[in-house]
């Protein structure tokens, strides 16, 4: 059950993690990207989270990992296909507008770097090990991508969804970071950060 303390805590985590992830993303794009808005963190019921990200039928790109180590769970970076194509163009100079093999590879690496930077930030703060798996990449309607991401995930009540917006090469890019630590491990993170009552 969500409470104010839990939401405040998760917003703090979201700010820190997303800050690091954005810095990494910006560096990857040689400084051509910057964050437009303060990340907006929510905790949503499992079945509402997919819809919140943009509707089950919108075509999106999802890069997703399983996290292991001291903290276990799932993490993903999701973006609408238009935003993905802007980033592909910046990374590969391919403006064909297609998610071809090189584009998928670039997106996999981009997602990998973003997600891992987020985890690195949390790991440093908590001294807990959070190791991401090799990422999967899915390009499909949001509903289908959601299935891929959550295959094998613990059925939890709530998913942390962080919405952020970037500006790169004259275009606005929207992205969502999903963080689903296994419930016990979420409590562990809170404890390591000195929050007893979360």
């Amino acid at each position: 059950m969500m409470n104010d303390a839990k939401l405040d805590f998760l917003k703090e985590l979201a700010n820190i993690g997303t800050g690091h992830a954005t810095t990494a993303l910006s560096q990857m794009l040689s400084g051509r990207l910057f964050q437009l808005v303060v990340p907006d963190a929510q905790m949503l019921p499992f079945d509402q989270a997919a819809d919140y990200v943009g509707g089950l039928e919108q075509v999106i790109v999802g890069i997703f990992v399983v996290v292991s180590g001291d903290v276990r769970g799932h993490m993903a970076f999701l973006l609408p296909v238009d935003s993905a194509l802007v980033l592909v163009r910046l990374l590969t100079e391919d403006d064909s507008g297609e998610i071809n093999e090189l584009a998928r590879s670039a997106l996999q690496e981009l997602g990998n770097i973003m997600i891992t930077s987020y985890l690195n930030a949390l790991a440093k703060m908590t001294t807990l090990l959070m190791a991401p798996s090799v990422p999967g990449v899915a390009v499909d309607m949001a509903g289908a991508v959601w299935q891929s991401i959550l295959a094998g995930a613990e059925v939890t009540d709530e998913v942390t969804v962080i919405r952020t917006e970037f500006f790169a090469d004259g275009e606005a890019i929207e992205g969502h970071i999903l963080f689903l630590p296994d419930d016990d491990d979420f409590k562990q993170i809170a404890r390591m950060l000195g929050l007893e009552e979360v």
Partner: peptide, 26 residues
């Protein structure tokens, strides 16, 4: 590697790597 957490860096260097660059790097 993007995975720049301390235990990983230590493990890699102990295994014999001469340097550890965290992605993204210049």
């Amino acid at each position: 590697s993007a995975m720049g957490q301390k235990p990983m860096v230590i493990e890699a260097l102990s295994a014999g790597a001469k340097d550890f660059l965290v992605k993204p790097f210049d």
